[in-house]
């Protein structure tokens, strides 16, 4: 998809994909025939540049076709560069500007409570993304409003656009920070399916407080030359790199 578009974000897509597979495969309540069903669970992909990961899942579950997926970033495509609810069935949020998704998810959670609905709200953010001040405004508000059905997943892949997070502006112990904001927090290996499934279950059943899963991941997971390599945050693979990637991932 990214190779065909000649642009995109492979690193942060590969760090998130195991989490998304588990979330869509095991947890999320949705109806492909009725994407606007108001009682569906919401998935707010706040790190919207990981759109290739989302589109792969949406194709897998039946929201979009393979042709849609391969038209990624091309004029008129339902697969916009960053995930966009206005363009794609199954997408609940228009991302692309970092730091906004948790606030949006909180709004969804408060609306669900007013509707006496048990729909769950899942939000995924990147670790570089939480340098945005708005994220912490939302974190404080979620605790204040006891948004127990708000579930956050932090893709802690340690790399952002320019370089490693620790070199740009280290976000530090995210678990402690969120705990001090009143959140229930669990740290996991974001590539261990067993740990992911168990954490998603813990998060969705804990409705007394907002919950966060800090998923320690590897940027570019599964492709040797992309792993932990800041230069593959937002770069398409060459023809040769694509061949190697597909071989390694298969």
């Amino acid at each position: 998809m990214i190779h065909s578009a000649g642009a995109g974000h492979p690193g942060g897509s590969l760090s998130a994909i195991d989490l998304l597979v588990a979330l869509y495969g095991n947890k999320l309540r949705f109806d492909v025939e009725n994407p606007e069903w108001n009682d569906r669970d919401r998935f707010v992909m706040s790190k919207g540049h990981a759109s290739p990961a989302v589109y792969s899942i949406l194709h897998e579950v039946g929201f979009i076709s393979e042709a849609d997926m391969m038209s990624f970033r091309k004029m008129g495509s339902v697969c916009q560069g960053h995930v966009d609810m206005k363009w794609t069935d199954g997408v609940d949020f228009s991302a692309g500007s970092l730091g906004m998704g948790l606030s949006f998810g909180l709004g969804c959670a408060l609306a669900a409570r007013m509707d006496s609905s048990d729909r769950d709200i899942w939000v995924m953010v990147g670790d570089g993304e939480i340098q945005e001040g708005q994220f912490w405004e939302a974190a404080m508000a979620a605790d204040f409003h006891s948004a127990g059905r708000l579930n956050l997943i932090v893709d802690r892949n340690r790399i952002q656009n320019d370089d490693f997070v620790e070199l740009q502006m280290e976000v530090g112990n995210v678990a402690n920070k969120l705990s001090s904001f009143g959140w229930e927090v669990m740290e996991i290996d974001g590539h261990s399916m067993e740990e992911i499934v168990s954490a998603l279950e813990w998060s969705s059943t804990n409705i007394s407080a907002p919950t966060a899963i800090i998923a320690h991941t590897t940027k570019g997971k599964g492709v040797s030359f992309m792993e932990d390599n800041p230069s593959f945050h937002g770069k398409a693979p060459s023809d040769e790199e694509l061949e190697i990637s597909l071989e390694e991932l298969s």
Binding site: S103, F104, L106, G107, C108, L110, Q134, E137, A141
Partner: peptide, 12 residues
């Protein structure tokens, strides 16, 4: 900033 996006989540 948070208020505006909470509003947008509620609108959705």
């Amino acid at each position: 900033q948070n208020m505006i996006l909470v509003a947008s989540g509620m609108a959705s």
